[in-house]
Design a protein around this nucleic acid. Structure first.
Lengths: 258, 258
DNA sequence: TGCATTCAGAGGTCTAGACCTTCTATCACG
DNA sequence: CGTGATAGAAGGTCTAGACCTCTGAATGCA
């Protein structure tokens, strides 16, 4: 530390051609965010980013806009900031949860390849309880899907999903051994925004044990999820049972306000 | 909806004397945040807040500052925003997790009163594994604390905590049946900033079953936590076993960037 | 009656600074 | 050779607007 020369001091500087603004309709702070992620990927944990004022100049945006991008990265766990010292690349090997991800995305983030085995798919009335959760009348139809989700071919969880039929007509004809969130987004233009999850422990029964390839009464996690779109309309209700010996939930929690 | 009079239209307006700035050294956006929480507490789920421009004028701050406060509230789950429509009070009966809280705070947020039974407290060398986690040499001393945590007098979890001794000298003489985070903050001036948590399922053994008043082999959640201060120095290592029949973990996850 | 258009209002983005607080490397002093 | 003071640098806060985009209700036409 402390080469008197070198333009960016300890900060790793990457050649960034002129201002930003290549994408047309995206907000500047989002473009900056994407560019910063690219830069961060080339750096190591603990490396210091160039100072905000410098980055703002490089990207051709105001410092407030740049800070908006960096704040978002800090929330997502890419970097951590320290007043007076700098902004540093965070350890990306852990966590990253607290983000709504489907199983496929979750697994590839952990370095596995996700696959599925479809057990059941049906088109049926929601019924009272489920109808209430999805804000439907009990007679309204839903698609019900049950799958075994696998990571590198090893069973990881049993997934039971219900989606209001009117949102995704013909969903039961889709390739349901693939990422459901992908299908929802590309085929139906449905983008999930957030979800409420409840996590409880359980032990697997005989049928579940067989599907997951674990002994009966093994510990497991139940994750119940109700996913919404941006206007908080319920889109998906999922209940997943993860085997406890190969899966854990990791999250970084922060104190007080952001 | 649409009384031509009444200053705030559909927004619930609360008498707010002049500008803000009563607290001396806190940032304005934090003061505004606190005041907004008070206002929100008087409102119902789904109510619309007054428009940003109006609130900014009431509080005597710029709109950007007000927005910073509201953004923080949105992240914490107090409100949700909808472009073009307004900012609305969120359902506060669920979630609120994703915040680093001690057991005491967690329980009072759920409407229970927290208490403790101290099982063990000792002053001992960290040893290899724990020393590595807390970034200490194996010979460095730590305080080790084991407690049964109770909600309204009912055992909820077994807590096993280690804290580097040099950070909190005399910790074993403190009233450890109270909130540890409170003691750390007030007596030692240590403020936690964030923590990494790993959640796994398990079943309780005979000893744990006795302490928690549940049958042997009941499902339970193990929460391992490593808590850091703002400079990411490890402060506390905790491993808690929560009974699965009375406790669950709730969190709201969001998609993509913030 | 019903549907399309319009438009005011609400949140979203962005700027170009000014000033504050905290950290840390450095330098001078004992 | 510490050790404490210090100045520069880096993030944090705040402003006063300008303009954009989206929503939803009012309007008006068929």
């Amino acid at each position: 530390m402390s080469h008197p020369k070198d333009s960016s001091r300890t900060g790793i500087l990457v050649e960034l051609p002129g201002s930003v603004t290549l994408d047309p309709d995206k907000a500047k702070h989002e473009q900056v965010r994407s560019r910063l992620i690219e830069v961060i990927m080339t750096m190591k944990t603990g490396d210091r980013l160039s100072p905000e004022r410098e980055l703002a100049a490089q990207f051709g945006v105001s410092r407030m806009t740049l800070r908006q991008a960096i704040s978002s990265l800090a929330t997502s766990g890419y970097v951590s900031r320290l007043q007076g010292a700098g902004t540093f690349v965070a350890d990306r090997t852990i966590s990253k949860n607290t983000e709504l991800t489907g199983f496929s995305e979750d697994m590839s983030a952990r370095g596995f390849s996700a696959s599925s085995r479809l057990l059941k798919v049906s088109h049926r009335p929601a019924g009272a309880a489920l109808g209430h959760e999805l804000v439907l009348s009990p007679a309204d139809m839903v698609y019900h899907i049950e799958r075994v989700r696998m990571a590198d071919g090893i069973p990881m969880c049993l997934e039971s999903i219900d989606i209001p039929a009117h949102l995704a007509p013909g969903l039961d004809q889709q390739p349901l051994d693939q990422s459901l969130y992908e299908i929802l987004a590309t085929t139906y233009g449905i983008k999930l925004f957030e979800a409420d999850q409840v996590i409880t422990p359980t032990v697997v029964d005989q049928e579940q044990a067989g599907l997951l390839h674990v002994p009966v009464h093994s510990p497991a996690l139940i994750v119940k999820r109700l996913a919404y779109d941006k206007k908080r309309r319920p889109i998906e209700r999922a209940e997943s049972i993860y085997r406890g010996d190969r899966y854990d939930i990791r999250l970084t929690v922060k104190r007080g306000a952001a």
